[in-house]
């Protein structure tokens, strides 16, 4: 028994089955990420002053990852075009490039960006104790200029005892009155060697930059995590299509393989498309 229209198109719709299927799947994906982005919007609108941090992510690395993903979108569409022109060799190379791009993206994310965040420390100061830490927060000047107050001291946790945290400060808290610190920097500034002592009783909450840190990191880790799972899924599918199994399919029916690549390519472009929105929303704005 054979299912009709797996490779050829049905005359009245002009489409083969998997193409209808993948677009429906992408429609559901639009709704899935729609739900998550709507959460992002409302959390951000609702965030109390000072509770939505800025400039905590590594912009050059993020930009590089964006470029890698765009590049992989180009290579996958070229892989598909090569198949259409019946150039298997070229297809094979383009596919390999796509897979590598996906792997690099994931490696950067999981082995570099995320762990770096896990090492970073932040302590939210209780409202009544904010004055005590004015030299790290610089709120007097910020209020004057109409800027959001700072309520958190961040850096690397040097040591802690029952009463205090010792934190190697981020430049923002090391020189809070320097106007250059009001704006995020393209190249992230390294943690200074200036150590601040924060009493635990003045601290409302202290955590590493984990999902629990704030609504910002919660949505960052959730959305990039889900996006990363999509990248992983795409890479696995591409590996399957790059392995010798597909060569046999190609020899039997090149159009079938081209269709498969087109469908998985559509998915991959969608993953790229989501990242195009994720990147500015979390890294830049």
């Amino acid at each position: 028994m054979e299912i009709p229209y797996t490779i050829s198109t049905r005359p009245d719709t002009g489409l083969w089955n998997a193409k209808v299927g993948i677009w429906l799947f992408l429609a559901s994906e639009v709704m899935l990420f729609g739900g998550l982005f709507s959460a992002y919007i409302f959390l951000r609108i609702d965030a109390a002053p000072g509770m939505w941090p800025h400039g905590l992510l590594n912009v050059p690395v993020g930009t590089m990852n964006t470029a890698i993903l765009i590049l992989s979108s180009v290579t996958v569409v070229l892989a598909w075009a090569s198949l259409k022109m019946r150039r298997y060799r070229a297809y094979w190379w383009y596919m390999l490039a796509t897979i590598l791009c996906g792997v690099i993206f994931l490696t950067v994310k999981l082995a570099y960006e995320w762990p770096q965040k896990f090492e970073h420390f932040g302590a939210y100061i209780k409202p009544e104790a904010l004055g005590k830490y004015e030299k790290y927060l610089g709120n007097e000047r910020r209020t004057e200029k109409g800027l959001e107050p700072r309520i958190e001291i961040t850096g690397h946790l040097h040591s802690q005892n029952a009463k205090e945290y010792e934190v190697a400060l981020d430049p923002v808290n090391a020189e809070p009155d320097n106007p250059a610190m009001d704006r995020p920097h393209f190249f992230p500034l390294p943690v200074t060697d200036k150590i601040a002592t924060i009493e635990k009783e003045d601290v409302e909450r202290a955590t590493m930059f984990l999902p629990t840190h704030s609504a910002y990191f919660a949505s960052y880790f959730t959305i990039t995590g889900l996006h990363g799972m999509h990248v992983l899924g795409g890479v696995l599918v591409f590996i399957y299509m790059w392995l010798p199994v597909s060569k046999r399919l190609y020899q039997r029916n090149p159009e079938h393989l081209a269709n498969r690549v087109e469908v998985s390519g559509l998915f991959w472009h969608f993953v790229d498309l989501i990242w195009i929105f994720v990147f500015p929303l979390f890294y830049l704005l």
Binding site: V59, L71, A81, P280, L284
Partner: peptide, 27 residues
């Protein structure tokens, strides 16, 4: 298809440029 390939490369370059523009505009 070859013609399309050219379009793909151009759009790829365009996307990279726009990425740079987004980053620049955010500053």
């Amino acid at each position: 298809v070859q013609k399309h390939v050219r379009a793909y490369l151009m759009v790829g370059a365009l996307l990279l440029t726009f990425t740079a523009i987004t980053v620049a505009l955010s500053y």
